[in-house]
Simulated scan of single mutants.
Amino acid sequence: MSSSVPVMMHVATASLAVVEAALDAGYDGLMIDLQHGEVGLEDACAMLRAVPRGNSHLFARPSGLEPGPIGRLLDSGARGIVAPTIETAEQAAQLVAAVKYPPLGRRSLGPSRPGLYSGEDYCAAGNAAVAAVVQIETAAGVDAAGEILAVEGVDAVYIGPADLAVSYGLPGRADWADGPVAEGIEKVAAAARGTGVRLGLYCSDPAFAAAHIRSTGLDFVGMGIDLVFMGKQARATVAALDAALEEQS
């Protein structure tokens, strides 16, 4: 894409065609979502393998911190694991343990995609190539952001504004320009700048995303969900047909 930062689409449908279509449309990368939608572990591994190994913006979001599924996603080519609802430094440490090879973590060495990481020290190369991404999406996570992002091995933080809004008693939506969600985003951004951790944010509106890329210094953006795109276009198509029929009656 022409954006100054990588833009990633959330994929909640178990479909290789959606993966190919999203990248062909110009997205820099993908967020394969095992937490929501219908993507299972086997589906996710196949979808990851459909993307060239050189794509460094290929993330997977499992439903928890279990090292087994995380290891399989990484061995299939995921370049980042996004752990949802991280609220403590201990949870962040669990993520690092599952994502990183020794001595930083406890990821197991085993058969994986050929040539997944290149370098004299395979463990060091793998640790450099793969991102441990904590998702902060609650008020508790915002309050503990400094401690969470200070955990050795945490590479990035991804802010989920809809769940964050719900934790403040607000409607679950993205793109908050003011109020506690906007303040929470700035608190996490400040913690990221203080620790040198990369910062990402989910946005639904391109203009809102552009404003935050400039004002907040985002390093990557999540924008759009395949199921939402399909529903929005389907509703628009049906509405357009109804309008055309009314005009012609």
Rank of each mutant, 00 (worst) to 15 (best):
S3R: 14
S3Y: 09
V7A: 04
H10T: 15
H10C: 14
H10S: 13
T13V: 15
S15N: 09
D24I: 12
G29L: 04
L30R: 06
I32K: 04
E38L: 14
V39Y: 06
G40Y: 11
R49A: 08
A50Q: 12
A50F: 05
N55D: 06
H57G: 13
F59T: 07
R61Q: 02
S63Q: 15
L65I: 10
L73K: 05
D75E: 12
D75I: 07
D75K: 00
S76Q: 04
G80P: 03
I81Q: 02
I81G: 02
A83C: 05
A83G: 03
A83I: 05
A89S: 05
E90D: 12
L95H: 04
A97W: 13
A98I: 01
Y101A: 08
Y101R: 05
S108Y: 14
L109P: 14
L109N: 14
P111V: 12
S112N: 07
P114Y: 13
L116V: 00
E120C: 09
A124R: 00
A125H: 03
A131N: 09
A131H: 01
A132D: 07
E137H: 02
T138C: 07
A139S: 10
G146N: 10
I148R: 02
A156H: 02
I159G: 02
G160C: 08
P161G: 00
P161L: 05
D163W: 05
L164K: 02
G169T: 10
L170H: 04
P171A: 10
R173W: 13
A174W: 14
D175E: 04
A177N: 11
G179R: 05
G179M: 03
P180F: 02
P180N: 09
A182Q: 11
G184Y: 03
A189D: 09
A189G: 02
A189S: 07
A190E: 04
A192G: 00
G194L: 01
G194K: 01
T195Y: 00
G196F: 01
R198L: 13
G200K: 04
L201S: 00
C203H: 03
D205W: 13
D205P: 11
A210I: 00
T216Q: 14
V221Q: 05
V221M: 09
G224V: 01
D226M: 07
F229S: 10
G231H: 15
Q233M: 15
R235V: 13
A236R: 15
A240H: 09
A243E: 10
L245N: 11
E246N: 15
E246Q: 15
E246P: 11
E247D: 14
